Simulated scan of single mutants.
Amino acid sequence: MELLGLHHVSILTGKAEKNYEFYTKILGMRLVKKTVNQDNTESYHLFYADAEGTPGTDVTFFDIPHLGKTYSGTSDISTVSLRVRNSESLLFWKERFKQYGVEQDVIQKRANRDTLAFRDFEGTRLILAADNGEKGVRAGVPWKRDDIPLEHAIIGLGPVTLTVAIAEPTVGVLTEVMGFRFVGSYPSLEGDYPEILVYATGEGGNGGEVHIETRADLPRVRLGRGGVHHVAFRVPNEKEYEQWAERLKEYRLQNSGKVERYYFKALYFREPNGILFELSTDTPGFATDEPMETMGEKLALPPFLEPNRKEIEAKLRSLILN
């Protein structure tokens, strides 16, 4: 029983229209599912991914208009990485970000990879991480756009960074409960702080890592727009999903219990520093209720919400995505 890597990250946005424009028209990702937050059906839930909605390529957003700003700190998923094929791609993206006025940093090494840090319009801290042929979790299928060559397209999720006040409790859950393994460390780029620890699962590499940053000097995060709500990890099938549900019970980790999301099954729990983790199945996927060719074009509702479509649509604000 082994987690295969990252499944998705979910982030908060206060403006879905600008969010759509940034992630599709600037970053070139595909909107593979336009649906609602199943825990609050008056709010949209948007899923961006690769061309096929492959697990491990999803960045999702809860749309909460008028949401306040995020105040960064500890107990935080502080950065989200996106994979590109090689270091040449980073040069392409530097020029593209300059063209669109996207806040960016210089190309720097993180965990022996060339990376380019940048921010979206709400301040979400993002990193492009170059594969450069390294072995590990398979990349996704690039979404074709005329203005982004396929060889430079985003091809999945890279490492997430967890910023915590004390690393040991988080490391304990990652290694003892979730089966992650320590694979190295690298110097902090923020100053004279402890080295950032790297843990991997599955085949590892760019799509299978979690990085742990210790910052005892920071206050606790206050999530708002641009903040990362949770990170999910890949469970290959429903059989292992059942086993993970039992494992969380065995370790007496308070959790959500089994949650049916229709596109995947989920388990939610908080690690000791308070960061929300999710375990999500690869199956059945986003093409369950829509043809692959037209995913994301219409409001999709899982079968248990479909009988309430008229009521749900009446309460949703108008959302025009061009």
Rank of each mutant, 00 (worst) to 15 (best):
Y241I: 05
N206W: 05
L267Y: 04
I196E: 12
H229L: 13
R215G: 11
D192T: 00
Y193T: 03
T201G: 11
H229F: 13
A266D: 13
I196N: 09
G205T: 00
G274Y: 11
H230P: 12
L248A: 01
V198P: 09
D217K: 03
G227C: 08
I212K: 06
N206F: 05
N273L: 05
T214I: 10
G208E: 14
A216Y: 06
F264G: 08
D192G: 00
D217M: 08
H211P: 01
K249V: 00
N206M: 12
R225K: 15
L223R: 14
D192Y: 02
K239H: 08
P272E: 07
V235E: 15
A200R: 02
Y251V: 01
Y193S: 11
Y241C: 13
I196S: 09
V198C: 14
D217H: 06
P194S: 01
R234F: 02
A232Y: 07
H211L: 11
N206H: 04
E209F: 02
P284I: 02
V221Q: 11
R222H: 13
V259L: 06
E190C: 00
A245F: 06
L276S: 13
F233A: 11
E242V: 04
R222G: 02
I196V: 08
Y241S: 04
Q243A: 12
Q254K: 15
A245R: 11
N237L: 10
H230T: 00
G224E: 12
E209R: 14
N237E: 14
K258V: 00
G204D: 13
T201P: 13
N206G: 09
F264T: 03
R234H: 02
E242K: 02
H211W: 15
I212P: 09
N255M: 07
Y199I: 03
G204T: 06
E238A: 10
S280Q: 08
G191N: 00
F264R: 01
L276C: 06
G191S: 08
A287D: 15
F264K: 06
G205V: 05
F269L: 04
E250G: 03
W244C: 06
A232Q: 09
Q243E: 14
E238G: 00
V231H: 09
L197C: 05
E213L: 15
Y262M: 06
R247G: 09
L223K: 15
G274R: 03
E209H: 04
G208Q: 03
E246G: 11
F286W: 14
D217A: 10
P194R: 00
V221A: 04
Y268H: 12
G202M: 05
A200I: 02
E271H: 04
G191Q: 10
E195N: 12
A216W: 08
G202I: 01
G257F: 02
N237T: 01
V259Q: 10
P219F: 05
R270P: 03
Y268V: 09
V259D: 12
R215P: 14
V231Y: 03
Y263S: 07
R215A: 13
R252P: 01
E278A: 01
E271Y: 05
G274P: 08
P272Q: 10
G257A: 04
G208A: 03
Q243I: 10
Y268P: 11
A216S: 15
V235P: 13
R225H: 13
Y241F: 15
S280M: 07
G191M: 04
P236F: 04
Y262K: 02
E203A: 15
H211I: 03
K249G: 10
G274W: 10
E250M: 08
V198G: 08
N255K: 00
G202V: 01
